[in-house]
Amino acid sequence: MSFDLELTGRRVLVTGGTKGIGGAVVTALRQAGARVVATARTVPTEAPGGVHYIAADATTPAGCETIARGALELLGGIDVIVHVLGGSSAPGGGFAALDDQEWQKELDLNLMPAVRLDRALVPTMLAQRAGVIVHVTSIQHELPLPESTTAYAAAKAALSTYSKALAKEVASRGVRVVRVSPGWVETEASVRLAERLAAEAGTDYEGGQKIIMDSLGGIPLGRPAQPREVADLIAFLVSPRAAAITGTEYVIDGGTVPTA
């Protein structure tokens, strides 16, 4: 049996593609032979072979327009979109600490880039009757952390619902849409969250990690996922090997979300 994912030459856009899960996705797809355009506000000065970077603020309409136009110019079309961009900068303190501006920031970062880029690029997929879209959500849309991530979790829930609707709309025209829902992944952002929670609680980094573990109800596997593990799942899902998969969500969380 061959494990070739048959991604050679596939034209891929990855948002948030310089660090964490996004950086791992770029690496995995490039190694699988895909042609990759990655986005971030600040991009590397040197790109590895097979990768182009677009510097743009995807939280704005103008930034998304720059990304969509640049991806089509660089790739000559689009076969795969992986929406990794996301995160949270909202303060701790529960719902009362979240004013309108904080709510809008979470929506602008975690929902609207996918909405805008899909609106710009999915028509090209429909025209060729082929394409794959991955929306990276989060288990927090099921298990939010009230102290610190209420708005983030709500924005990811909105992304998940939007993804379901898009999947139903475009499946019959050859475009697949899937969701990947990570739990705690050991990225730069998760390290910062643990450090922030530790500082607020007057403990050390390990204590911050325990706060996260406890708030999630524990991780049966006993550790966070690694970015490359999430990237490998995404690489499979966007490949022809997963051609019959659409409209569903794949959870990669070490067993954090209880299952029946």
Rank of each mutant, 00 (worst) to 15 (best):
R223D: 00
L126T: 07
G87V: 05
T66H: 06
V257H: 06
A24G: 03
Y162C: 01
L159A: 01
T15G: 04
E106N: 13
V84L: 11
L74Q: 15
Y205H: 15
I234H: 06
A167R: 07
A189V: 02
A244R: 10
A260L: 15
G76F: 15
A171H: 07
T45Q: 11
F95C: 01
P224M: 13
Q104H: 14
A56S: 09
Q209E: 12
G87P: 05
L159V: 07
S172T: 04
G70M: 06
P91T: 13
A97D: 04
G218I: 13
E249I: 08
L98Y: 11
G16P: 05
F3M: 04
G49I: 05
G9Y: 05
L85W: 00
G254M: 12
V51L: 08
V82C: 13
K105N: 13
G23L: 05
L72R: 09
A154Y: 06
L143M: 15
L29W: 04
R176S: 01
E102M: 11
L126I: 11
A56N: 11
T203K: 08
V191Y: 13
D204F: 04
P227S: 14
Y162P: 00
A201D: 10
L7K: 01
S88I: 11
E147T: 12
V177P: 03
L72S: 03
I211G: 04
V230Q: 07
R35A: 12
D204I: 04
E6K: 08
L5M: 08
G86N: 10
T124C: 00
T60R: 12
V134N: 05
E147V: 12
V257W: 09
G218N: 10
L75G: 11
T248R: 15
V26G: 04
A28E: 10
G217W: 08
M1F: 10
A40D: 01
G207P: 06
S148Q: 11
I234M: 03
L216Y: 13
S172K: 06
V177N: 03
D118M: 09
V251C: 12
G77Q: 13
G255W: 15
A32G: 03
L159Q: 07
T27K: 00
V132I: 06
A260Q: 10
R69L: 09
G63S: 08
M112V: 04
A194I: 04
L237M: 07
E195R: 14
E106T: 07
D232V: 09
R10K: 09
